[in-house]
Design a protein around this nucleic acid. Structure first.
Length: 698
DNA sequence: TTAGGGTTAG
């Protein structure tokens, strides 16, 4: 048998070897390997190729029209000695194709390809179809007709068509092509599976994914392919079958850092930080992305201290951080809410060469962090310094201003934003409505609520209704708030009824409170805060029997009150934590003295404790004692003892600040001349010269 | 040609 191919001819290929000519490669005896190239025919060698790459032609499916007649008048005889020239021409045409910017240019190049008689080359045509996808030309008739003109498509060409359809989001059609390919007897390649698996993942079609998984194993042993394995892990993760992804991972004969990181990140996103850490510990070589997945994972699971700990380990290990890592670290600091960390991370970012001005992700994260740390002016400085702003940076800034009670600035910024190309989204309106709500701007709030859909096409969600109920409720429009809830197009959630109940406490309205509570208890049976709110409403109305009934319900359900605590930065930026009535602090005696001293100064200034903040039926003297031990006051006294006179005092509280403490802080800011910033679980309060930035709407 | 980590609210 002759071992050398002598020449190649399109004509002879078409006529003599119709059955064998899906050949994409040419066998040469000289180096005993398959060359990428064009179709070849030659008596001796063809039989040998046949045995390897035989592909019977079966009638293509409806999606792939039957190939047209071979153009006899354009056949050319190409001697084997010129094969290198053909290959050269092919690569030239491919680079021409890659430079195409639009459909017209592709069509022009295609005409040239036909003139050069290379339109039967699967290599070139698959590139052409890929280019259609790249320049965002949907897989219309052109791509299909180009495909159908190739008489003997190979696996790469079929895969290009599959990817073209997937690029259009047409998963079903791509599966039809895959089935035709199978019917034609063309063995799929690993790209075929990676493409289809990605398509299944983006449509969360796990059944298709499973079928493809099975076939990939059966047909080509692709289970050992690293790429297919990784895409399989990804597909199962995206479809929510983390265990299946893990099984693929465990069975993979070879894994790389991508296999590991995909799974680590999936565990983190599923809230399984234990599994994520375990896997991360086993990862032999940890790179920047893997470390970042851990840092971000802890942040996503509200574990900022662990996130910072991993970041420190990453730095100690000499692994460079990039802007993605920094966004994670910045978010960790935002969760901690401590100004000390905020300034530290800003330095870290700038030392790593990421100036917020140049990176909108880092900038937006910094704005959010500074706002949450009580430094709204710093947040605004970052915002102003940014070269580019998007909906995230604008929304973060608007929300920042809103939670700090700067409603007019928030609204001004919104007005400025809508003059640019940046379109507000659902979150932007949460910010704008929150601003109105925290400042009691009823008419403006109603206006924004109306125009969000009519002018900006943003449908109000339940959260926007929540803001509106909050706004109406805070300003005492309880009936109007209840009417709005009744008119909602969706079911009100616990947040809505909770906002109404909170407003009922402020305005001592037990009738509406009972309606709110009835609905709220159905939705959140075990949230003790709701029962306490209702008890507060009854206490304000001095309906002590009803208070007792609520307390009984709490006992019956065995609900435990979550302890109130506050923390504050003391000497050298060390954070100190105080519980209500806490006497465990080493300087407890001094703290009590400082507090008594402060109360006396406040009393001279006219401070009268608001005893209705205590919802227990006890003597007034006992109420006074209970109020005096609230955790934020202990924190304040400690800060007064240990920090410089000129500096602001920043207190973070886990629950909502009570009315009497609010009054107390107003007075304290006046008699001490200090700025006091309290972050409660709702918002920030800036106390300065006897008044609060919230204007008593909170 | 195919693969891993990120920004606003709740």
């Amino acid at each position: 048998m002759k071992k050398e191919a002598r020449g190649t001819s399109w004509q002879s290929c078409a006529k003599k070897n119709a059955v064998a000519c899906t050949v994409y490669h040419i066998w040469t005896a000289r180096n005993r390997r398959l060359f990428e190239g064009t179709v070849v025919t030659s008596d001796g060698i063809i039989r040998e190729i046949k045995t390897q790459l035989i592909t019977p032609i079966i009638k293509p499916s409806i999606l792939i029209p039957k190939p047209t007649k071979f153009p006899d008048n354009q056949t050319t005889f190409i001697p084997f000695s010129q094969l290198q020239q053909i290959k050269h021409l092919e690569s030239q045409l491919i680079s021409t194709l890659q430079d195409c910017k639009n459909l017209a240019q592709i069509k022009q190049t295609h005409a040239y390809i036909i003139r050069k008689c290379l339109h039967q080359s699967s290599y070139i045509i698959s590139k052409l179809i890929r280019m259609l996808a790249k320049i965002n030309v949907p897989m219309l008739s052109y791509g299909i007709s180009v495909f159908s003109q190739v008489r003997y498509p190979n696996a790469f060409l079929y895969t290009a068509l599959i990817r073209g359809y997937l690029n259009d989001g047409r998963l079903n059609e791509s599966v039809v092509v895959y089935n035709s390919m199978r019917n034609d007897g063309t063995p799929p390649v690993s790209f075929t599976y990676t493409a289809l698996l990605k398509g299944s993942a983006s449509e969360m079609n796990v059944n298709l994914g499973r079928q493809l998984h099975g076939e990939s194993v059966k047909l080509g042993g692709f289970s050992v392919d690293l790429f297919v394995g990784n895409v399989l892990i990804d597909m199962y993760i995206k479809c929510g079958c983390l265990d299946c992804g893990r099984r693929v991972f465990d069975e993979m004969p070879e894994r790389d850092i991508i296999s590991w990181t995909s799974l680590i990140d999936a565990y983190a996103k599923a809230g399984e930080m234990g599994s994520a850490s375990e896997l991360f510990g086993e990862l032999p070589e940890k790179d920047m992305v893997a470390w970042t997945a851990m840092v971000t994972g802890f942040v996503q699971n509200s574990k900022p201290r662990e996130a910072l700990e991993y970041f420190e380990r990453m730095q100690n290990g000499g692994v460079q951080a990039d802007e993605v890592t920094l966004v994670g670290v910045i978010n960790a600091c935002a969760q901690l809410g401590a100004a000390k960390y905020a300034h530290w991370v800003r330095d870290v970012a700038e030392n790593s060469g990421f100036r917020p001005a140049n990176d909108v992700h880092v900038g937006s994260a910094l704005i959010d962090m500074y706002s949450k740390c009580g430094c709204v002016d710093d947040a605004y400085n970052v915002f102003e310094s940014m070269h580019e702003n998007n909906v995230y940076s604008y929304s973060s800034m608007i929300i920042g201003l809103a939670i700090h009670g700067r409603a007019s600035s928030a609204i001004e910024l919104f007005e400025e934003m809508v003059k640019t190309d940046v379109r507000p989204n659902s979150v932007t309106f949460i910010g704008v409505l929150t601003a109105c709500s925290h400042a009691g701007l009823v008419e403006q709030g109603k206006h924004f609520f109306e125009i969000m859909e009519s002018s900006y096409g943003v449908n109000p969600h339940v959260d926007h209704y929540n803001c509106m109920v909050d706004l109406l409720g805070r300003t005492g429009r309880l009936d109007e708030a209840l009417d709005l809830i009744k008119s909602m197009p969706m079911e009100p959630n616990a947040g809505i009824w909770g906002a109404l109940l909170g407003a009922c406490r402020k305005y001592a309205n037990p009738d509406i409170a009972e309606i709110a509570a009835r609905n709220l208890f159905k939705l959140e049976t075990a949230n003790i805060g709701n029962y306490i709110l209702l008890a507060d409403v009854y206490a304000k109305a001095e309906r002590w029997e009803d208070v007792m009934k609520v307390r009984k319900m709490i006992r019956k359900k065995a609900l435990r009150k979550s302890p109130a605590f506050s923390w504050v930065e003391g000497e050298k930026g060390v954070i100190h934590e105080f519980y209500a009535g806490d006497i465990t602090h080493p300087r407890s005696r001094e703290i009590t003295e400082a507090l008594e001293n402060l109360v006396n100064r406040l009393k001279i200034n006219g401070y009268q404790p608001n005893l209705s903040s205590v919802v227990y039926d006890v003597s007034d003297e006992e109420k006074r004692r209970m109020l005096m031990n609230h955790s934020e006051r202990l924190a304040l006294a400690y800060a007064l003892l240990t920090t410089d006179d000129g500096s602001a005092i920043r207190i973070v509280k886990n629950l909502r600040i009570c009315e009497d403490c609010h009054l107390f802080m107003c007075g304290a800011s006046q008699v001490t001349g200090r700025e006091i910033i309290v972050r409660d679980n709702m918002r920030f309060h800036h106390f300065r010269d006897g008044s609060c930035s919230c204007c008593n709407f909170w």
